[in-house]
Design a protein around this nucleic acid. Structure first.
Length: 779
DNA sequence: CAGTGAGCGAGCTTCCGCTTGACTT
């Protein structure tokens, strides 16, 4: 065993550092935090100065024992966890848990994993910063108090197993608020006017020049009137303005910007990006992937420069130092960058290659020179109106960083600036080809994609690089939000075209509002959000985290006592919890929509035991009320009386076929026909409200035909026993259960007795390991 | 995982931030 033990957070980091330090040093990893507040209990002794009750996580017991052994024999223990609040706490937990003697313990930090940085750190050890540790404890305890006091309120007042927390509840609020903005949005239409001219280019060939009228018209009448004026107008170039402009590269990647760009450019989900990045990190190809820093090490700056010089030359290189603007950034690591800048590509899966290439380009571009552009704006005047058309062109004079990388944006712009304009002169007359006025609509605010939500959370200083992906998964697991799958609607718009002195009016149609894979709130999400907004508006405040972070900073600087800070919060917060528990109404999102015109009974919607339902009649009535589930995509908040009444029209009978009744309904897996105690799924193209008996019969027959082809063998002894060919190959079906056929057995050769034996064997093994079966059922 | 289309009855659920893991066909 070597004289020195170094403990870092990540095993990949440990491996790298061990190489730098030589044989006198053993480097081990703590795998993040080793202790936490007790998992099932409250974990904080409120009445005793918020004393935390820490436990070693069960999966860390062996690790801690190993660390203990190693630290006992080492002469010096170097605690090299990250230099941020959490890292300092990890160092402190290690020293407490391993009972490290003060005189043989050193605390060291480094921001980059390079040999000089690590050797320098070893030369400058310091003490554990207990103020910073206390700031972390305050953060941890506050989160526990908020989460473990609010969640039970939801269990009582809304539904069991729900949760609330400082981060997740605000994430849900953002999505709910945005959805309501969209619901309340009133789209306005206007007319954009585009004129197409013909001019000759440098070679004397005719080319088109596209220009847009500066003025947009509110109504069709105004647009028509303008086109009438255009009929008799002459057009002339009044002005040409050339303006140089510059574009600068974006800073290197942080976790959040990597997630955004990987989503935009490669279509990866936030968690996918993190999994791929983790692989790259473990393979030593990129630096650490959970970071809020845009900083590059001196080593990286040097190798990036060398790479740019050899690739593109001196003119393309520019030294840049980026500074983070993110609220609450802790900057314990570098930006995300390739470990070796001269590695333009790597071997690996296609996904790994793509993500690596993205990181490489972004990093290199960040040290390249500005792109120089020239923007030309041409003003075209009319002989009989003061309206002006503008044509805009942009030329790249010097590509600079654009040679390598262009950052994407979320909004797809339809404002296509012409790349190059033909040579033109002021006062030059122009020949008109056509003028079109197209009706357009103002855009509703966009729904959040996963990556856009991450960007917003980061902007508000809520959550950390390590929690963005888990937060998105939590709010979906709690069914507060889901990924959208909206087809949108069709709308018509008007296009007016003036060509050869004639105005033509056309009506065209387009699909709008379609949204796939965006985050939308569910009914539960909205009800929980509204409840929390009513009773705990301060926790849901977008600035709540920012405000408590200020307190944590004061604690870290030794200006504020952490217990006092928590006491101050708790004295206000806890009474609100008690009050809400005692006096608030249960929430179900109930809305009364009106009365059923047939029966005169009340129609209402609310969240029922198994999800959102519409109810016909009420408890006080003579008869039991009737219920129906809401369809996917319908919300309690927006469903109309008519839509709610439609839900009671299913299941409906299609009449009899061969003596048995066919019934159409909508179930968990979509629309179906039930016939002779069997279920037949309807294809998406069939509307269960409109389907007729003949179509249903055809579907039933088709399914029966397919089932017949599935049958490999049936037995005369027992019609319940069949050998079927399924998605995963042949299997035995017996009394509605399925059994695997042992390997190397020809299914067609199996006898009735052999099948029964397989079934009995399966029953035996199932009895032997019932726990296993149970756990595998769980998600 | 092998195809589904229900309807309580006891006790448990829950937070945020660090980090990777993995008894099998």
């Amino acid at each position: 065993m070597s004289k020195n033990l170094v403990i870092v957070e990540s095993p990949a980091k440990a491996k790298t550092i061990e190489k730098f330090l030589g044989s006198d040093y053993t480097v081990l990893s703590s795998f993040g935090h080793i202790r936490d507040l007790s998992k099932h209990a409250f974990g904080v002794d409120i009445t005793n100065g918020f004393q935390p009750i820490y436990e070693i996580s069960p999966d860390k017991k062996k690790l801690v024992a190993d660390l203990k052994k190693a630290s006992d024999v080492a002469e010096t223990v170097w605690l090299a966890s990250d230099e941020d609040r959490e890292g300092e706490a990890i160092a402190w937990h290690l020293s407490e848990t391993l009972k490290l003697k003060h005189d043989k313990t050193r605390r060291i930090v480094f921001h980059e994993i390079t040999k000089p940085a690590i050797l320098k750190a070893i030369e400058h050890p310091r003490e554990i910063d207990i103020d910073l540790v206390n700031a972390q404890q305050a953060r941890r305890i506050l989160d526990r108090i908020v989460g473990f006091e609010l969640s039970p309120v939801l269990w009582r007042k809304v539904k069991s197993s729900l949760s609330a927390g400082r981060v997740q509840s605000v994430a849900v609020r953002l999505i709910v608020d945005r959805e309501r903005e969209i619901q309340g949005f009133v789209s306005e239409s206007f007319f954009r006017v585009i004129a197409l001219f013909t001019v000759t280019d440098a070679d004397g060939k005719p080319v088109e020049l596209k220009s847009e009228l500066q003025h947009r018209f509110k109504t069709k009448e105004e647009a028509l009137a303008f086109l009438e004026i255009c009929k008799t107008s002459h057009y002339v170039i009044e002005d040409i303005i050339k303006k140089p402009s510059k574009r600068s590269p974006a800073p290197p990647f942080t976790t959040s910007t990597l997630q955004q760009e990987a989503a935009r450019k490669l279509g990866y989900s936030v968690s996918q990006t993190m999994m791929i990045a983790q692989k790259l990190y473990e393979a030593g190809q990129i630096t650490y992937m959970r970071t809020d820093s845009v900083n590059l090490s001196d080593l990286a700056l040097g190798t990036a420069k060398a790479e740019i010089l050899s690739m593109a030359g001196e003119r393309y290189w520019q030294f840049r130092h980026f500074q983070t603007k993110t609220k609450g950034a802790q900057e314990a690591h570098e930006a995300i960058r390739p470990t070796y800048m001269d590695k333009h590509e790597i071997s690996g899966t296609a996904q790994e290659k793509n993500l690596y290439a993205l990181i490489w380009k972004r990093t290199i571009a960040s040290q390249m020179s500005d792109a120089e552009l020239e923007r030309t704006t041409i003003t075209i005047g009319m002989s009989n109106s003061s309206e002006k058309f503008l044509a805009v062109g942009e030329v790249i004079k010097f590509d600079g960083f654009l040679r390598v990388y262009i950052e994407s944006t979320d909004e797809e712009s339809d404002q296509d600036a012409e790349a190059l304009l033909p040579p033109l002169k002021v006062k030059q007359p122009l020949d008109i080809i056509q003028v079109t006025a197209t009706e357009r609509f103002s855009q509703r605010p966009p729904r959040y994609s996963e990556a856009a939500l991450v960007r917003k959370l980061e902007e508000l200083g809520i959550g950390r690089p390590s929690t963005y992906a888990p937060t998105i998964s939590t709010i979906q697991k709690r069914t507060y939000v889901e990924k959208s799958n909206l087809d949108g609607e069709v709308r018509t718009f008007t296009v007016l075209t003036l060509k050869k002195d004639k105005i033509k009016e056309e009506s065209k149609s387009e699909r709008y509002g379609a949204d796939k894979g965006k985050l939308v709130p569910t009914d539960i999400g909205m009800v929980v959000n509204d409840f929390l907004m009513d009773y705990f508006p301060n926790i849901l405040d977008y600035n709540f985290t920012a405000n408590v972070e200020k307190e944590f900073d004061d604690i870290a600087e030794g200006q504020l006592n952490w217990q006092k800070s928590l006491q101050h919060f708790y004295d206000k917060f806890h009474p609100m919890v008690v009050e809400t528990m005692a006096n608030s109404e249960r929430r179900s999102g109930e809305r009364v929509l009106g009365v059923d015109p047939k029966s005169g009974k009340q129609i209402s919607v609310r969240i029922g035991r198994f999800g959102p339902i519409v109810q016909l009649g009420n408890k006080e009535g003579d008869e039991k009320p009737q219920f129906a589930s809401l369809k996917k995509g319908q919300l309690l908040e927006t469903i109309t009386l008519e839509e709610a009444l439609d839900l009671f029209k299913l299941p409906r009978s299609l009449g009899e076929w061969e003596g048995k009744e066919m019934v159409v309904g909508i179930g968990r897996f979509g629309a179906y026909v039930r016939y002779d105690s069997g279920f037949y799924s309807l294809p998406k193209t069939e509307d269960p409200m409109l389907i007729v008996a003949e179509t249903a019969v055809a579907i039933i027959q088709a399914k029966r035909e397919a089932d017949k082809n599935r049958q490999m063998k049936i037995f005369d002894q027992d019609p319940d026993l069949q050998i079927l060919n399924g998605r995963f190959g042949p299997y035995i079906s017996y009394q509605k259960k399925n059994y695997k056929i042992p390997a190397k057995t020809d299914p067609l050769q199996l006898t009735y007795e052999a099948c029964l034996e397989i079934i009995q064997n399966d029953a035996k093994t199932a009895k032997k390991a019932p726990a296993k079966k149970k756990s595998s059922k769980k998600e």
